[in-house]
């Protein structure tokens, strides 16, 4: 005779599960991954595979031998970290550097805090920033995309944001630089220079819509992030259109879409209430624009998100949900 089970209510569980969420994100990343394979060819595949496999291996080894827990690599979170890390590097990055990046992302940014759910900073971004600081040359020479499957040495060139930063720095005006900048159509579809995952705004948006449809993320963070960037840059553009480029360019260029849709919305490192999410998105947006317009780096998304990650515990403390029966006097 089977024994009856006794437990506290509720006795039902919804259909949401950690695995479903994580694999949902992986699926949402597929379009952007396909675009990167298309434009950067075999090199992109090798970099992505290296990142994913080394993330999985490091997570397994650390859990098994250092933390002595049951390894949980099948939950998909390490795969996401791997893909996002690969998305944040140029396809010409040496493979050994990619492995180091994966070790930093998983070992330092995730596991040293206790594993999934306990890391204050987005692991992929920590890995990326570590690589950027350690190997600045390799991390900032982007091969220009060519839609063929070849291993022939690609020509490297700056990203649109890099062109802009350099040009403005030299004292050129926007209209002088216009010829060197890609068309908005190319920036939307993906035919521009840049890191693996950030080139195609369209593919990223598709993934984002999929995640919203699956209720993995809500629209609060991406919308407030993108809107803030748009409004801030629009104001600057109005003030001096020859010095500050128009807001649409800012939305499509660089890692903004990737950051706003996939990195800033990382559940573990983002606030938990809607109001908190809006503030967090706003903060990310302001910091990104500040770095892009006046900082020394052409791109500021990863720094902006990492800085806001650090503020998340405070936001969670300060922005409580509206309690039922609170307002009525």
């Amino acid at each position: 005779m089977n024994l009856l089970t006794v437990s506290g209510s509720p006795h039902l569980h919804g259909d949401q599960s950690l695995k479903k969420i994580m694999w949902g994100v992986v699926i949402a990343l597929v379009p952007a991954m396909m675009v990167s394979f298309w434009y950067f060819g075999l090199a992109a595949i090798i970099i992505t595979l290296t990142a994913v496999v080394s993330c999985l291996i490091f997570e397994y080894l650390i859990q098994k031998f250092l933390l002595k827990q049951a390894p949980t690599i099948t939950d998909g979170s390490a795969i996401i970290t791997g893909i996002l890390l690969a998305f944040n590097v140029p396809s010409s990055l040496p493979v050994w550097q990619m492995v180091i990046g994966a070790l930093v992302a998983i070992g330092i940014a995730k596991m040293s805090y206790g594993g999934l759910g306990k890391n204050p900073f987005n692991p992929a971004l920590v890995g990326r920033v570590f690589l950027l600081i350690s190997f600045p040359v390799d991390m900032t020479s982007w091969p220009l995309p060519k839609p063929i499957w070849s291993m022939v040495d690609a020509i490297t060139g700056p990203t649109p944001l890099g062109v802009l930063k350099e040009g403005i720095g030299k004292g050129d005006t926007i209209s002088q630089l216009a010829a060197q900048l890609p068309s908005y159509q190319d920036m939307f579809i993906g035919g521009i220079g840049g890191s693996l995952g950030e080139i195609s705004a369209a593919a990223l948006l598709l993934g984002g819509l999929f995640m919203m449809y699956k209720k993995i993320i809500t629209c609060h963070i991406p919308v407030s992030y993108l809107l803030t960037v748009f409004v801030f840059t629009a104001i600057m553009w109005q003030i001096n259109p020859e010095h500050y480029i128009n807001p649409l360019f800012h939305l499509l260029a660089g890692g903004l879409m990737l950051g706003a849709i996939f990195m800033a919305t990382d559940m573990v490192t983002s606030p938990m209430t809607y109001r908190g999410m809006l503030l967090y998105g706003f903060g990310c947006g302001v910091l990104t624009v500040l770095i892009r317009l006046w900082g020394s780096y052409p791109e500021g998304v990863s720094f902006a998100i990492l800085i806001m990650n650090a503020v998340v515990p405070l936001i969670n403390k300060g922005f409580k949900p509206k309690r039922f029966g609170e307002v009525i006097k």
Partner: peptide
């Protein structure tokens, strides 16, 4: 011997409120 099985948070204080014991 167990008469029922408990499935839930691993804390005696809660289980004590919930039921008499396995």
């Amino acid at each position: 011997p167990k008469k029922v099985e408990y499935d839930g948070a691993s804390t005696c204080t809660f289980a004590n409120n919930l039921f008499a014991g396995e």
